[in-house]
């Protein structure tokens, strides 16, 4: 954002569009106790502590709710995946209609700058802990949209990614394999992308503002 210039007070682009409320923290409190090995301040014997964390993470891995948000061509692979042929509900992965009821975000393909704004908004509304699965080459290095004027190339500059599934487009089996990697990582307490996002919020915001020039999201995390 440009600095406010007193000689040009009519230039509204220099004004911050949204301000954090007075006295608020830059982001929501980080729930450190979620993770294996991060529960040192709880007065419990280490064995019990470890067991509790393992059980918590096992519950989390068994409760993945995928947000119904298709961003690119990969959304076409989600239909056979969620219906009878490949049927992801046999792995215990249901879909969820709104961001506030889901915790897995599948970025299914290329992201235009306009979509990226909506994706960030949805991602920040999802409750913690939450995970991002990036599907297709476009999210890794731009894929076939490497020279597109309106499509980002590297997704993890803007959102933390836990699992990448490469291919153009990956088949539903590949996405199932990606889910199993994600479940394993969640069970081990390794899939901490959302934690990384909160810790490095300023860095992510800087990258996001470089492509989203008419930024109207709050500077704090929702």
């Amino acid at each position: 954002m440009k600095k406010f210039d007193p000689d040009r007070p009519w230039d509204l682009t220099t004004l911050p569009t949204t301000m954090a409320p007075q006295g608020s923290r830059p982001h929501a409190p980080v729930e450190d106790q979620c993770f294996l090995g991060a529960e040192a301040d709880i007065k419990q014997p280490p064995k019990l502590q470890e067991a509790v964390a393992t059980i918590k993470n096992w519950f989390r891995a068994s409760s993945l709710n995928v947000l119904a948000f298709g961003t690119g061509c990969g959304a076409i692979e989600l239909r056979p995946l969620s219906t009878s042929r490949f049927d992801m509900s046999r792995f215990g992965i249901p879909g969820a209609p709104t961001p506030r009821q889901s915790n897995v975000f599948i970025i299914s393909g290329y992201l235009s700058v306009k979509t990226l704004t909506r994706v960030i908004r949805c991602y920040e509304q999802m409750p913690d802990p939450k995970w991002v699965v990036a599907l297709g080459s476009c999210t890794i290095n731009g894929g076939m949209y490497w020279d597109s004027y309106n499509t980002i190339k590297v997704l993890d500059l803007y959102l933390p990614v836990d699992v990448y599934v490469s291919g153009c487009m990956p088949r539903p089996e590949a996405l199932i394999a990606g889910f199993q990697y994600l479940m394993d990582d969640v069970k081990k307490g390794k899939a901490n992308g959302w934690h990384h996002y909160l810790e490095n919020l300023e860095w992510y915001r800087e990258n996001q503002k470089q492509v989203i020039t008419d930024w109207d999201l709050p500077n704090y995390n929702w």
Partner: peptide
């Protein structure tokens, strides 16, 4: 391509 190189970073 020049716009894309200027705006969107590569991996």
């Amino acid at each position: 391509v020049a716009y894309c190189d200027r705006t969107h970073p590569v991996r």
